[in-house]
Design a protein around this nucleic acid. Structure first.
Lengths: 207, 207
DNA sequence: CAGAAACCTTGCGTGCACGCAAGTTTGCGT
DNA sequence: ACGCAAACTTGCGTGCACGCAAGGTTTCTG
């Protein structure tokens, strides 16, 4: 499933992708993100600037990809892994797990993303859109509703996550409340959707 | 509220904006959208190319703005106008009303947007994001929940609308079902969210 | 009504995204 | 082992978004 289809060309591609996102993150940390040209990233990774855009659709994406990794598909897998739990709980737990303590280098990188407006937006955006697809598939399997319903619910969850992340990464001009740690924000944002998840779950079970 | 703050500078600005979006739509219809440069639109509207981007953030936005107009804020107003109806119904009706029969020139323009991938995406995207803010405000007034909850629900509704529009504007390679007219798609996409809207409504009422 | 302040337009320069058409590498069948 | 086809990289060219600063217009203020 997550194995390499053939072997060697795929390795090279993955190596290049990794080199690019790590170079992007490293450069963004040591200089300011604004002072990093895409040419620099490409050069640091040993490829042409044109190739950079074969891997990432924008300058910001490589940087956030260094943090994001494959969280989104792990969320989908975690939801699948608990078919007995209440759906709303399974979703909330999976998301909180995935977005809690993003790892070692993540700490400094997240500060960077939080600080920088363009990165903030790309982060929330890609997180949300990357989550929508896999989660929709997982939901469609889990409840036996039509794909459209699963897609709407997945998109709603993704939107809630995006809002939580935006809230969490807000500049917070010291006037408003710090609005708490990310896990709490995530659960609070997901709470309003619980009735909808419950409904589709019971409807599927009772059907 | 929707009045001009002072007068004359605002008139000129609105005139320019209107000239730009109408020029954009006209050119996009008579040539193909791909054959319309932003320079052409600017010239047709009698402003410099640089000024174009002071009004619209991308080439596609002017075209979809010609169709979109101010639908999104009308949705918010319509929700506010029916404080007695069930929230889920008020939202669904308001949205269906706003997105049904977009007007005269809309017919041809919508075909154009439907046909063209980049326009489709911009259309669904701006529609959704333009809806989220005003609707969140309206919801926050209507139910007396915290703003965060209102925002999540508004974003979910916006996501559902986006999905319905995407589905409706899908190329539909004649293999899948035509998936029906837009109002039906909208109601179907909004249906899964009704429990969440009911819940926040009763919680606010009972509170 | 004159001067100032706010605002808008515009040209210029830069960086970026991407289509296209070579040129090069990898994989596979025979 | 060989050669072809698919896939990847790269340079080039184009169009676009946008920061910046100069100049013009509208609005505000005394």
């Amino acid at each position: 499933m997550t194995e390499r289809p053939t072997g060697l060309r795929e390795q090279k591609k993955e190596a290049t992708r990794k080199a690019l996102r790590e170079a992007a993150l490293r450069l963004a940390i040591e200089r300011e993100p604004d002072n990093v040209r895409v040419d620099d990233i490409a050069q640091a990774a040993g490829v042409s600037p044109r190739t950079y855009n074969n891997y990432f659709p924008s300058r910001e994406h490589a940087i956030v990809a260094a943090v994001t990794a494959d969280r989104e598909s792990r969320v989908a897998a975690a939801v699948r892994a608990r078919p007995d739990a209440r759906l709303a709980d399974a979703v909330a737990d999976a998301i909180v797990d995935a977005y809690t303590d993003p790892g070692e280098h993540g700490r400094e990188a997240l500060l960077l993303i939080t600080t920088h407006p363009a990165l903030r937006q790309t982060y929330a955006e890609t997180t949300s859109s990357a989550l929508e697809g896999p989660l929709a598939t997982a939901l469609a399997e889990r409840v036996h509703a039509d794909p459209q319903t699963a897609r709407v619910l997945a998109a709603s969850v993704a939107a809630a996550v995006r809002i939580a992340i935006e809230e969490w990464a807000r500049p917070s001009g010291a006037l408003v409340v710090p609005s708490g740690p990310l896990p709490d924000l995530l659960r609070a944002a997901l709470a309003p959707l619980a009735p909808a998840l419950d409904a589709v779950e019971s409807r599927a079970t009772g059907d």
